[in-house]
Design a protein around this nucleic acid. Sequence first.
DNA 1: GTCTATAATTAGATAGAC
DNA 2: GTCTATCTAATTATAGAC
Lengths: 187, 187
Amino acid sequence: MDTAERLIRSTQELLWERGYVGTSPKAIQQHAQAGQGSMYHHFAGKSELALAAIRRNAEELRAEAESALSRPGTAHEKISAYLHRERAILRGCRIGGLAQDPDILASAELRQPVTETLDWLHARLTAVLAEGVTHGEFPADLDPATTATTISAVVQGGYVLARAAGSEAPFTQAVEGVEKLLLSKQL
Amino acid sequence: MDTAERLIRSTQELLWERGYVGTSPKAIQQHAQAGQGSMYHHFAGKSELALAAIRRNAEELRAEAESALSRPGTAHEKISAYLHRERAILRGCRIGGLAQDPDILASAELRQPVTETLDWLHARLTAVLAEGVTHGEFPADLDPATTATTISAVVQGGYVLARAAGSEAPFTQAVEGVEKLLLSKQL
DNA sequence: GTCTATAATTAGATAGAC
DNA sequence: GTCTATCTAATTATAGAC
């Protein structure tokens, strides 16, 4: 693996664990086993490297979510597969976590991939729920877009509660609760 | 207002907006209009001041949540009052947001009030939902503790989605969605 | 209690040698 | 491409005068 690649992957890890404000160029260099000069040769600075890492994290998140949401089966099975997919719960969401970072929110460039990824996820969840309504799996009064936002919020909030508690249990329970509420809507 | 009080309140504001890692002693001093010496006279350092500010934010959060949850009416009305209480949505949750901060999570002392406050909220939501089940407002198969975690997660996740989008809409929609799911459980 | 001086460390980067 | 030297500002304090 070349240096630029090691730098990006190290930044992905550190952004995920410590956020943008909590990640220094020095920490990135040490994690990537690259020198100062090397880092500044490949990237103009911290924010440019962070942008590459955030985009990469966004790509990976989309691929993993899409894998669950495009599996064969009913709409409920797809949502369930998404909710129960393997996650490093205590690390939090690699994209959603950045929404708490003041420097990310202050930069239109760094914020864009965060916004776009969550918008994409919302659209995918909405499409799957709409498919469920069309097939008579859910009642016609279930609004796909609204419910998609709720499901996405349960996942993001589940991460927050789990990290605060230092335990995966709140995430698991939050997901279980929303699934039960959704199941009771099934015809 | 005396200096110690101004320092605590300034730290409350800054922790809420920028987190612990993103808040420097200098920024606190400027916001509080206090000098270096003054700050270090009243508090041993950043973390001691942050602890006081986090505890204060936790108290305020509890008071505001309790105000909604103890209003007269049905369980559903209490939950609804909690969900729709006035919030500075784009600022995020003053307690939940800290669960994303690496230095908060790494310190048992700073983390404790975060954990405790969310645990308290969970217990209060659970009690109100249990009351709703007892009174026949919700079906007996609704598990209060699980549903309380889901509701709490929707709120925390709603904040995350709203901040990422730069709009209050996702929060409002996430709350609306969980309320509709909950209403459909009503007898 | 508050102020100013001082300081060790890190953050974030530039310049130029190799 | 990578390394080392250098640099300015910020971070997080401590010391001692007033």
